[in-house]
Nucleic acid binder design. Structure first.
Lengths: 223, 223
DNA sequence: CGAAAAATGTCACTCAGTGCCACTTGACAC
DNA sequence: GTGTCAAGTGGCACTGAGTGACATTTTTCG
């Protein structure tokens, strides 16, 4: 909204389904750019690879790279961003369960994914942590994750209010919902850091469960 | 450490005191760059001002700008970074009080400063929120703040361990200390967002106190 | 005073990111 | 099919951030 959104490729629909030949090809190019970029970055380091290099390896022009990604950093965030979308999908809709419970499950399921793809996750993480710009972008995604989680808390507490309003747009999320979401994301991030620093040798899921136990204490403290 | 630290002006000593002629002048130039930059950015918007413009207004060369600030964004973060240093100073040393209590006081004192300088804080905040790069840098500072707070928690719980080690370097902070710090920073940030979104019309200190009440609940949940 | 160190200005260079325009190729109506 | 339209692309030129090298001035310190 306010973030002077670059004139960018309009947030891919992300719909795997059928899609026309055109969308299919676009997706292939995009994927080629991601894999080329990650491969080169891991090999030579983010700052010693130019966008030209990436484009050439993917078999497209430099100009096309920027039609798919607003910045050189964004191509590294692609995977995380897709994860974010599936994460958001997990939280869609509102069964009766408490929001924290649902968020907990979604996070722990993500933790399982991470442990299953340990090597890849650790390698990409090392790449990100080795560069200031990338760290900054990574936190940008954390903020988006936080917004998704705020949505989950707000949806839960706002069902009544929304109903009374006639099903219109949701009310602004309460400060408590935002507090909870910020705490969740912070704790999840730290847990992940800890796991990665230990070379992925600790039990990520177990740590995550401990973290959410703590968070349950936080929620109990809500008035 | 790992963040491929740019070859930058070596973290100003920040010592106000006497300082030689040389340091004095350097500080004056730096301040001139900051005020010029903020003035131009607020007037025309961050992306419609070049580093050349800023340097010219401050009466130095473009090259000198980059001897003081690693990036165009960093000059905007200067004020926050100084605040961070005074904040860290507040947490220096270890009286017997619980860490959360001391962090709470430091944060609430910061809240008072913000309310006292409402206009300036809100204006700079609007500047930052209006630009993606600046938001990312801002979160970078949040992370540094988090590290400082981790230090406070770790120092408190690590006194014994450090003593046994013979006063050597502190042990790595516990995951609980890191969780707490992440939760604190997240909640502080959201509280500030909320205050700013309301145009600074709400009571920041009161909100902050509520936030820390919540955090006390979190700490109780620690094993 | 004289030498080392710090700060600056100038110049040249790399590379990220953008606007513009011409060209190709799927998508879709008829 | 055929024509029309829009999307995706490549090429090119341009702005501006950031860096390295070198010469010059100015402070510090023995």
């Amino acid at each position: 909204m306010s973030t002077a959104a670059r004139a960018v490729p309009s947030e891919e629909p992300l719909a795997e389904e059928h899609a026309g030949l055109r969308a299919q090809h676009r997706r292939r190019v995009r994927d080629a750019l991601v894999t080329s970029a990650l491969s080169l970055f891991k090999e030579r380091g983010f700052e010693h690879v130019t966008v030209d290099d990436v484009a050439k390896m993917a078999g497209v022009s430099r100009r096309t790279f920027f039609r798919h990604f607003a910045t050189k950093e964004d191509v590294v965030m692609e995977r995380r961003r897709r994860q974010l979308h599936t994460f958001a999908a997990l939280l869609e809709g509102d069964d009766g369960r408490p929001a924290l419970e649902r968020v907990r499950e979604a996070c722990l399921s993500l933790a399982d994914d991470f442990e299953a793809q340990r090597e890849r996750v650790l390698a990409e993480r090392a790449l990100v942590m080795g560069n200031r710009e990338l760290v900054a972008r990574d936190m940008e995604v954390d903020r988006e994750l936080e917004q998704v989680i705020v949505g989950a808390f707000a949806a839960h507490e706002g069902r009544r209010a929304a109903a009374r309003r006639g099903g219109g747009r949701a009310a602004a999320p309460s400060i408590e919902a935002r507090w909870m979401a910020a705490a969740v994301v912070g704790i999840v991030r730290v847990t992940l850091d800890d796991w990665a620093e230990g070379g992925g040798r600790t039990k990520l899921r177990a740590m995550g469960e401990r973290g959410f136990t703590l968070l349950a204490g936080l929620e109990r403290a809500r008035t």
